[in-house]
Simulated scan of single mutants.
Amino acid sequence: MEDQELKRLLSEAETIAVLGAHKDPGRPAHYVPKYLWEQGYRILPVNPRFAGEELFGAKVVAGLKDLTKPVDILDVFRPASALMDHLPEILALRPGLVWLQSGITHSAFERALEEAGIPVVANRCLMVEHKRLFRGALPL
């Protein structure tokens, strides 16, 4: 996906659901959504292990089917081997963009989303890309 389109999608987005959100501050599944929350996005954390607890100002839900608000971006922190299990719920949710975090790719999953008209970004960190697109290059 080209930077201009990515920047547009991130600018227009208000709500980001985080599949695999975690409460351990040392894990990317915590500090990435925390950064996004601090940038003003509404974060909807999804993780059955922490269902009912609060993260980023919202109650954690067990699964995508439990989300009650529209989702602009679905940020995925799940292993590639688990992605196809989530596909039916993701297709039902119809997020505006599915973002697979760094290290996560699955060609059949990505193809299924694209065929359903849902754009996908794979193997990139949403926090890193947001900083790059909105803050400019960071000095070395």
Rank of each mutant, 00 (worst) to 15 (best):
T68Y: 01
Q101K: 04
K23H: 14
T68H: 08
K65F: 06
L36A: 04
P119W: 12
E12W: 00
R27A: 08
I16T: 03
K23P: 14
L113H: 08
V46K: 10
Y35T: 07
I118K: 12
V46P: 04
M127N: 01
A62C: 03
A108M: 12
A112E: 15
I118S: 10
N47A: 02
G40D: 06
P95A: 05
L140C: 10
L87D: 02
V76L: 11
N47I: 09
G103S: 12
R8Y: 10
P139G: 09
S11L: 03
K65I: 01
P45M: 06
P25F: 12
V120E: 07
H22G: 10
C125R: 02
K7I: 06
G26W: 06
R78M: 04
P88L: 02
F56W: 06
P88Q: 02
G52I: 08
A82D: 15
Q101H: 13
G26L: 14
R42P: 00
A51L: 12
S81Q: 15
Y35S: 03
A62G: 13
L55Q: 01
E12Y: 01
P139H: 11
G103I: 13
R27L: 15
S11C: 04
V76Y: 11
L6W: 14
L138V: 06
E110L: 07
S107W: 11
L91N: 08
V128H: 06
A62Q: 04
L87W: 03
D85K: 15
A29W: 07
F134P: 13
G57V: 00
G20I: 04
V60N: 03
I43F: 01
G52R: 09
S102N: 14
V60K: 01
R135W: 05
F109N: 08
K59V: 13
